[in-house]
Design a protein around this nucleic acid. Sequence first.
DNA 1: CCCAGAGTTGACGTTAACGTAAATCGCCGA
DNA 2: TCGGCGATTTACGTTAACGTCAACTCTGGG
Lengths: 135, 135
Amino acid sequence: MISDGARTYSISELSRMFEVTPRTIRFYEQEGLLEPQRRGQTRVYHDKDRVRLKLTLRGKRLGFSLAEIREVIELYDALPDGNARQLRRLLELLAEKRTNLQRQEEDIRLMRRELDDVEGRCREALEALPENTEG
Amino acid sequence: MISDGARTYSISELSRMFEVTPRTIRFYEQEGLLEPQRRGQTRVYHDKDRVRLKLTLRGKRLGFSLAEIREVIELYDALPDGNARQLRRLLELLAEKRTNLQRQEEDIRLMRRELDDVEGRCREALEALPENTEG
DNA sequence: CCCAGAGTTGACGTTAACGTAAATCGCCGA
DNA sequence: TCGGCGATTTACGTTAACGTCAACTCTGGG
């Protein structure tokens, strides 16, 4: 499955690429996040699926639920032909996500401050220890 | 409970402040994240608890598990008197969190790009619609 | 004194996101 | 032809993080 042009991937390949289990990948399909082709009963993944998987995992790391991610993906897929309601709904969703990201950035900023603070105190405490013999 | 100096809070007050249920607050206590005083059987929260709760919720928004958050809090609490092993462990933890935050920042950056992209296509699709009669 | 309202305890229920295990299938090389 | 490897299906199990209820208890007000 390494011939070029339109690469395809087996489930175990994808699994290794992203360090998730095949089970996880099948589960995402079941939840409507992936739609691999079949060759017999075996799943065949294309780049589109790989990208979707990447986006899904990124979304997860940012704390989005699979359901949220799926809604975006679905609307996106129906994009060039979607009706006005769908499109507006998508814009709404996007705005929500942006707000979310903004809050997270703020949270990260604050969290960094606290890490700095804690680390400072921690180093002070280490300095103050009598046994500074081991490096 | 509004006398100043050392303010205290009831569980429902905290609950309203942070928009979480009392159940959640009790659960966090059970998980070792809060240690309110008691007045009879009733919990009495001080500013320390309020701060801890705030940190906990922030951690949650950033995708940390309660267990992770607790470990940091515990080590932090034992701070000025902790032994060298504890202190080093805490520094390790802090470094981990930092790495984590960095990855999240990158994820946010990438996610923003995609939102921009999707929004662009979405607006194009809206423009292309025949019925642009409603604003 | 009595009760309404806030708080508590204990226990069981729920949801998301997978893990795990068993049975089956299909293909490929010795 | 057979054995093994990778993939699949089905189904039940698990974990975190609470929700939901029922049955108290306590406390201040009228």
